[in-house]
């Protein structure tokens, strides 16, 4: 069975869970696949580690836990240190490159793609949409969810009135990802 495992890691307040939720929603509701989501929160609201585990597959998923993700999305140095060693060899690392410095301890063959998501979010008008920039980046680089599905999932997941900015954040991340890919190949 073709199954992709994704882990999203960062700090409380960065929107890690929402990022995982949107990916799962895009895959399951809008792309017609199966998806599971497991969320782990830190002990406090702000600044503590939290992560989401998302599995996407064409068939129903029996085991929802993600041990060695195919794709790791990280938004904080701690999440990078904690989760990067678990990446499947040959997997994909997507990281916030103004917050995280990638070292040489990555598993063999991992392809790393960085994006200044916090700065891009600030330039769009709100730091708060950093997770949506990352979500777009994920869709752009990996293609694991379609552009339309992810866009619909963003639109239906964010509060009313904030759709415009969130969609712009999504597209920004997506385009940034597509451009990096084009350069890399």
């Amino acid at each position: 069975m073709d199954k992709s495992e994704i882990r999203v890691g960062g700090l409380g307040g960065q929107g890690v869970i929402l990022c995982g939720m949107i990916i799962g929603k895009a895959a399951s509701i809008y792309d017609g696949k199966h998806a599971t989501l497991i969320q782990s929160f830190g002990p406090e609201a702000r600044g503590s580690a939290c992560s989401a585990q998302v599995s996407v597959a064409d068939e129903p998923i029996g085991y929802p836990y993600v041990k060695n993700p195919d794709v790791l999305i990280v938004m904080s140095p701690d999440a990078y240190t904690q989760f990067a060693p678990q990446l499947r060899p040959g997997g994909v690392l997507l990281y916030e490159n103004e917050l995280i410095a990638v070292d040489d301890k990555l598993p063999a063959g991992v392809k790393a793609f960085g994006i200044p998501a916090t700065r891009l979010a600030e330039e769009l008008g709100r730091r708060l949409v950093l997770n949506i920039v990352m979500t777009g980046f994920f869709a752009g680089v990996t293609g694991l969810v379609s552009f339309e599905a992810a866009e619909n999932a963003v639109k239906s997941s964010v509060p009313r009135g904030t759709e415009d900015l969130n969609l712009r954040a999504f597209r920004k991340g997506y385009e940034y990802g597509r451009e990096l890919l084009a350069k890399a190949s």
């Binding site: 409380g12 929107g15 890690v16 929402l18 929160f41 609201a45 702000r46 709100r126 009135g161 904030t162």
Partner: peptide, 14 residues
């Protein structure tokens, strides 16, 4: 308040 709702959504706290 629109943004407060977004802030609550990204707080990653339950």
């Amino acid at each position: 308040h629109l943004w407060e709702a977004m802030e609550a959504l990204v707080s990653d706290f339950s």
